[in-house]
């Protein structure tokens, strides 16, 4: 049973009115349940895809896409970034493209040092 059944069906929190649903006997916010379903389905799909005979490059792109989608759902809904002020979103996401630049620079450097290094963007050719 729920731990706080006394709360009304559509309670207000920091982010406005919240819709609640019953799931396996637990009272959950509708969006939390929705995210749980998305994460579960994508995890099953990720594992399932590795057992297929799909081309490794296509598989890699699909797996990265699914992982980024899952991570985004966790960040936006469970870490509440969706409801934060835009400045906090900038704090959280600005380093991401910077780390991509960092990775690209390192790979270009490593290409000259390591023999047989295949850069990720060459894999897609």
């Amino acid at each position: 049973m729920s731990d706080h059944d006394h709360a009304p069906e559509a309670a207000h929190d920091d982010h406005g009115p919240a819709q609640y649903v019953e799931f396996l006997g637990f009272r959950m916010k509708k969006e939390y349940l929705m995210v749980l379903v998305v994460l579960s389905v994508l995890t099953i799909a990720e594992v399932g895809i590795t057992f297929t005979r799909l081309d490794r490059k296509i598989m890699g792109v699909l797996l990265v896409g699914m992982a980024v989608t899952k991570a985004s759902f966790v960040g936006l809904y469970y870490m509440h970034l969706k409801y934060e002020k835009k400045l906090l979103l900038w704090v959280a996401f600005t380093p991401l493209p910077l780390s991509a630049v960092y990775a690209a620079a390192l790979m270009l450097d490593a290409e000259k040092i390591l023999r047989g290094l295949t850069l990720p963007w060459n894999l897609l050719k």
Partner: peptide, 9 residues
Amino acid sequence: IAYGILRAG
């Protein structure tokens, strides 16, 4: 990134 570079090489 280190994992990726070592793997690619």
